[in-house]
Simulated assay, not measured.
Amino acid sequence: MAKSKFEQSLEDGAHQQIKSLVGSWKGTSKTWFEKDVLVDESPTEAEISSILDCRFISYDYRSSLERKPLAGKMIIGFDIPYQKFTFSWIDSFHMGTQIMQATGDATENGFSILGSWGNPEYGDQLFGWRTELQIISNDEIVFLAYNIMPGEEETKALETILTRVI
């Protein structure tokens, strides 16, 4: 019997790639609010777990920003029909009470996805937010995030380097 597209992806495709991330991670997060001005560097702990037989993964992290605790969650998946990586992201700092949806393409060693966020206090235009995952090895990953102000070039906002604990 032929394998389903999901079974094939889980064996040697995008779902195999995200499944390989399941585990416990520790590292460091850096935050920038302005170009080239590092605001904070804090320890980070993360747990990546499988959801629905690895159709998705949950990336749950805890860190701090300027000594104030923060936590977040990304539900990450790969949309087989559209051949795109996707995520939904919430956290206690950047997103407030919003949920960001993002989608994008595979890269050589992970993905690059683009979402947007806004607030009527800042006007009608939405800000862009590009997130990259770089899988350096089985035991090291890097999340990078870039803020895109309306009409401006993107600037690095976050860099989280994680090493597998378990």
Rank of each mutant, 00 (worst) to 15 (best):
Y146D: 07
F93I: 06
A102Y: 01
Q125G: 01
T44W: 00
E7N: 13
L21S: 02
S92F: 07
P150L: 03
N138E: 14
E108W: 01
D79S: 11
P120F: 13
G13D: 02
D12V: 13
D40P: 01
L158N: 15
I80F: 11
V39D: 15
F85T: 09
T163D: 01
D79G: 05
T131Y: 01
V37C: 03
I135G: 02
A14W: 03
T86N: 00
Q83D: 15
L65H: 06
V165L: 13
I99D: 09
Y82F: 12
V165E: 13
R55A: 14
K19G: 04
L10T: 08
E41T: 15
A157I: 02
F111A: 02
F111S: 00
G96C: 09
I90C: 01
W25D: 04
M95L: 15
S9W: 06
T163C: 03
G104C: 04
R67L: 13
G104F: 02
G72N: 04
I76V: 12
N109Q: 12
I141W: 04
N119Q: 03
P43K: 00
I136W: 03
Q98G: 12
A157T: 11
E41C: 13
G118H: 07
L21W: 08
G110N: 04
G115F: 05
F33T: 09
I141V: 15
I161D: 01
N138D: 15
E153P: 07
S50G: 14
S49D: 07
L38P: 14
K156N: 15
W32M: 13
Q125K: 15
S42W: 03
D36R: 00
R62T: 13
T160F: 05
S50D: 11
E140M: 13
Q8T: 06
S58L: 03
I166N: 15
W25S: 04
A106P: 08
E34L: 09
M95E: 09
W32L: 11
K19F: 05
N138A: 15
E154F: 07
D79I: 04
L21Q: 01
I90K: 10
T44K: 00
T160Y: 06
N119W: 07
I141T: 05
E152K: 14
